[in-house]
């Protein structure tokens, strides 16, 4: 397990370095700079600005500088938000994204898992068709369609929540629901398929033959194995939640990490853009580690192989 951990850490460091380098190259090679705005600025002022932020140095020495800062955990200054560091901005924005992401994930699991299991147990009943149909519908209603519709109904017509912005304590709900419903649909489909497959296995027949109650057979014996496909989906789901939060934060005008990221990329805010990407990469690496641990905890076959997933 320790070897596994160390190997994963080295892997993570390599991934982060690659991501950082690619982002750095992309941001710098693109035409336009952070100060190339619509306002015409005197050449001397531009030069002074660039000098102050170290943009007059060669690309290679800029890279070295940024990498040096990164190693010390400093993501550099923001060009657009004057006087604020990228660490500072991420520190403000990330908790907001985290709340929405976490709540969305909880909603997805709490709705998706029971729905999928129930649909499998009551296969080919009205309940199953309703759940499966609903899940298909949920997958085909992308967040940027569902989000505005939810905002229209609950925000504007019913006036239960703010339609956009981040002011009240309840503002997390609509974005989280939008984010969660899509994954709830996906998880429900996976859980249903997984459950159906497991329920036809011999050990389940044995459990039933022993005279165990159906709730025990499903809840204790089958569930654990049936949710393995769901666990495998967790990695891509986390990545999707992060991508999704970018869209959702735009829909609901929420000053989270994704909102800052899109703004930074559009405004050529070099350090903010590359800082957010590196931060996202770090997040993903950590989350994938968690996914592997969850997998190992659920599946004894993986545990015995020393945590190596196929």
């Amino acid at each position: 397990m320790l070897v596994f951990f160390v190997r994963r850490l080295i892997q993570a460091a390599v991934v982060l370095l690659v991501v950082f380098t690619i982002t750095f190259a992309m941001v710098r090679l693109a035409p336009g700079g952070p100060f190339a705005g619509e306002r015409v600025v005197a050449a001397e002022i531009l030069a002074a600005q660039e000098k102050a932020y170290g943009l007059d140095a060669s690309i290679l020495s800029q890279y070295g500088r940024a990498l040096g800062l990164l190693l010390r955990g400093d993501l550099g200054p923001s060009y657009v938000y004057e006087g604020r560091s990228v660490n500072d901005l991420i520190g403000d924005a990330f908790p907001i994204s985290l709340i929405i992401g976490f709540a969305g994930f909880a909603i997805a699991l709490l709705i998706g898992l029971p729905l999928g299991v129930l649909a499998a147990v009551r296969k080919n009943t009205a309940l199953d068709h309703l759940a499966s149909g609903g899940a298909m519908l949920g997958i085909c209603l992308p967040s940027f369609v569902l989000g505005p519709i939810l905002a229209l109904i609950f925000g504007i017509r019913l006036n239960w929540f703010n339609a956009s912005g981040w002011y009240d304590a309840s503002d997390w709900f609509l974005p989280a629901l939008t984010l969660g419903l899509f994954y709830a649909a996906y998880i429900a489909r996976l859980a249903r398929a997984g459950m159906l497959e497991v329920l036809s296995l011999d050990y389940i027949r044995t459990a039933r033959a022993k005279g165990l109650a159906e709730s025990v057979v499903v809840g204790k014996h089958a569930l654990r194995r049936a949710i393995l496909p769901v666990a495998s989906f967790l990695g891509p789901a986390f990545a999707g939640l992060i991508s999704g939060s970018i869209v959702i934060e735009r829909v609901f005008q929420i000053p989270g990490l994704g909102y800052h990221f899109v703004g930074a990329a559009m405004n050529r805010d070099y350090y903010l853009a590359q800082g957010t990407v590196v931060f996202y990469a770090l997040l993903i690496v950590l989350l994938n580690l968690v996914v592997d641990l969850v997998h190992a905890a659920l599946d004894p076959r993986i545990r015995e192989k020393g945590g190596l997933q196929s």
């Binding site: 990221f261 559009m266 996202y280």
Partner: peptide, 17 residues
């Protein structure tokens, strides 16, 4: 690559170029 949020890179690419 599966576990990577590519949307981020696509956004970078489409905003920058």
């Amino acid at each position: 690559l599966y576990g990577f949020p590519f949307l981020i890179f696509v956004i970078l690419m489409t905003t920058l170029f």
